[in-house]
Amino acid sequence: MTKTLILDGHNDLLSRLWAMNDRGGDSFFAGRAGDISLENCRAGGMAGGFFAIWVPGEVADAPDPMARYRAFPAISVEKAHRVTMEQASILIRMAAARPDAIRLCRTVAEIEAARQVGAFAAILHLEGCEGIGESLDELQVLHAAGLRSLGPVWSRSNIFGHGVPFDCPASPDTGPGLTDAGKRLVVECDRLGVLVDLAHLNEAGFWDVAACSHKPLVSTHSAAHAICPSTRNLTDRQLDAMAERGGLVGLNFGVGFLRPDGIKNPDCPVEVMIRHLDHLMLHLGEGGVALGSDFDGTMIPGWMGSAAGLPLLVAGMERAGYGPDLIARLCWGNWLNLLSRVFTPG
């Protein structure tokens, strides 16, 4: 079994630590139960990734895993401001306490430097911008603190746009796209060199980002709608538009977005993931596909278990005939190339 270096497009560790009131991330280092821990990452070859800030709704608003469709109500701005800062501070504390183990990276050079010394390269991401106001003042502060990636919405509406609900089978064309404030947010992200994530936007929002931004079009954790017709997945038309812009898709490991029936069932063979990778590469090319696990935020295939099981995915790629150069690009190089083009301000 081959252990390959992996840079992952999305995990939800910060919201898990926040919910546990683990404000220093101590359980990450000690070996917490869950997909992501320092031990699991090292065992699986996961050496970098996007750490998402996600503000949960009320308990009553939590998604029903068996529901075919679910829209999510808005959350209060006051709560979003507070929780956004609290979750960002967790990663900042972790990196300050253990720079030997994890580093908050703001540039591609810092990602490479972390890799060279064996530290986890963490990229701070904001999944849903309820914690940012129309003035975008909070964006400036978060960027100064290390934020380098954001999704304007999670799967609920806010002042910037409209998230795509969880539904299958269904089209991602579920309503209006970005608001005027959302369009200003995208333009400012381009100026700052912050990646704009399309993962939870509906189709109208996708095309609005394409019109507002001059950067590559990126979805950090999605899959192919042609295989699993979930609203959260990308249609061939969207993939072709991303290819024209030199964009990238990080493959989501969530079984509800991989299985053709869209059911949350951990019985999801590695061959299903390979089928998605093949379809994405058919449209985006070998340079436009990477990994975006959604660890600690979704139900992953049972055979993988956690980040420690990533070598099993690599072994599946090898059995499918992927050569070592292609595997290295899918697991690390393609993200690095994409970030080198997005993180440049202007």
Rank of each mutant, 00 (worst) to 15 (best):
D294F: 03
L248M: 12
L248I: 12
L291M: 11
L338R: 07
F343P: 00
S230P: 04
L310D: 00
P269T: 05
I263L: 14
T231L: 08
A308F: 08
P324K: 13
D296E: 05
G321M: 07
D296Y: 02
S213K: 13
A320Y: 11
M299K: 00
T231K: 03
K215F: 10
T231I: 06
G316A: 07
G292A: 09
G333K: 04
G297F: 00
L251S: 04
M299S: 01
G256H: 03
A211H: 12
G316M: 10
H225C: 05
W207D: 06
D267S: 14
V270Q: 01
A224E: 05
A211I: 10
T220Q: 06
L280G: 02
W335F: 09
I274Y: 05
T231S: 15
A226W: 04
P301A: 04
M317D: 01
D278N: 12
M304A: 04
M317Y: 10
G305P: 05
R245N: 08
N337I: 03
A223K: 01
H225N: 07
F295L: 14
G316Y: 09
L336I: 14
A204R: 13
G254I: 01
G288W: 03
D208M: 12
H221I: 11
V314S: 04
E271R: 14
E286D: 11
K215M: 11
R319P: 01
G323I: 08
